[in-house]
């Protein structure tokens, strides 16, 4: 009985704290996304020939976001029946957006104004106390930061439409 009460208290507490942390994170993410929205970021591998790029450098960023007790509990129940684990979705979303934002922040701080060849990867280093359970989500983002001449008007950058592959 004591264990059940402890579980219920943990669920309630971690629901509140997890929700609070998530809301604050989303608020920050949205603020920064607005701030960085004019930074050109693409997954092209090469710099298009007409982009007057002057400098290039590898930038990387990574993010580790932990699950909370409530999310894991709900997910464990979900695992019995199958279906969308909705409590994990915001976690993945937050980690991905946070990683891209960090990449952009890093690039801008070093004086670059665009990123090409953006790649996202996920790895798992953190394990929870119980084996075979995920402790959190880890996203690694990397890309090539470049300096391009925007002629003080970013709408002048032409983004080439890739030619379709003919096989």
């Amino acid at each position: 009985m004591a264990q059940l009460i402890a579980t219920l208290i943990m669920l309630l507490l971690t629901f509140v704290t997890g929700n609070l942390i998530e809301r604050r994170h989303y608020k920050k993410i949205k603020m920064r996304e607005t701030k960085f929205k004019d930074m050109l970021t693409t997954n092209f591998e090469n710099i298009p020939y007409d982009w007057n790029a002057s400098e290039a450098r590898l930038v990387t960023s990574n993010v580790v976001i932990s699950l909370d007790y409530f999310k894991r509990f709900v997910a464990n129940l979900r695992k019995v029946f199958g279906g969308n684990i909705v409590t994990y979705e915001p976690l993945l979303d937050r980690a991905r957006r946070e990683a891209i934002l960090r990449l952009k922040e890093k690039a801008r701080a070093r004086g670059y104004n665009a990123i090409i060849n953006l790649r996202l990867e996920t790895s798992q280093i953190a394990n929870s106390l119980t084996p075979k359970q995920t402790a959190g989500v880890e996203i690694l983002a990397y890309g090539t930061a470049i300096k391009i001449n925007l002629n003080n008007d970013n709408t002048d950058v032409k983004i080439p439409i890739p030619e379709p592959l003919i096989q």
Partner: peptide, 28 residues
């Protein structure tokens, strides 16, 4: 095609299901 600054897409990646609703359904 010209570059237009856009905000991230908010619509698809996170289901619009309240976690408490999910919790209640699953617990029951």
């Amino acid at each position: 095609m010209k570059f237009k600054a856009k905000l991230a897409d908010e619509t698809v990646n996170v289901s619009k299901v309240h976690p408490l609703k999910e919790f209640t359904t699953l617990i029951i």
